[in-house]
């Protein structure tokens, strides 16, 4: 994945197919506008998200990462998001411990009907990451320079 050099933040949102992705879809149907900085990656369940995805996103040039899934109790696969909750509670603390600003990583519960919440979250996260500026930590410089030449 190559990333274009801009000053505008690039945010990856890992969205669960059954809730948040549907919520984002609904936001589109409602013609509500959310920042184009947020790039959605659809995953079958928020439990599918490997903490390494987040590290890889930072490595390849993202400034912020979101992991979104169904509210606890609403998981399409019954229990997936409970594992997500444990995993990312630890991961969030570990990233903070390693000096990544807590504003760069967010985990949210957004259901299929919460189009407004999706839009608000996208706006809030974009504003926060924009204030923090481009991320340099964990970033793979060699690869980034190569893609800027293209």
């Amino acid at each position: 994945m190559s990333v274009k050099e801009t000053n505008d933040p690039k945010i990856i949102a890992f969205c669960c197919n059954w809730c948040t992705y549907t919520g984002a879809d609904l936001a589109g149907l409602n013609r509500s506008h959310y920042p184009e900085n947020v790039h959605i990656v659809r995953v079958p369940c928020s439990g599918r998200v490997n903490p390494q995805f987040i590290l890889r996103a930072f490595r390849n040039g993202c400034d912020g990462v979101m992991v979104c899934g169904c509210h606890p109790g609403d998981c399409h696969y019954s229990t997936g998001n409970y594992f997500t909750r444990r995993r990312f509670t630890l991961m969030k603390r570990l990233l903070e411990y390693n000096g990544i600003d807590p504003g760069r990583f967010h985990a949210r519960w957004i259901s299929g009907s919460e189009a407004g919440k999706f839009r608000d979250t996208a706006e809030e996260v974009t504003a926060m990451v924009r204030k923090l500026g481009p991320n340099t930590r964990y970033r793979e410089y060699a690869r980034r320079e190569m893609s800027a030449d293209e």
Partner: peptide, 12 residues
């Protein structure tokens, strides 16, 4: 990380 509890702390 191999199990979960319904009452886990919810920070999200």
């Amino acid at each position: 990380l191999g199990v979960f509890d319904l009452d886990d702390k919810d920070e999200f």
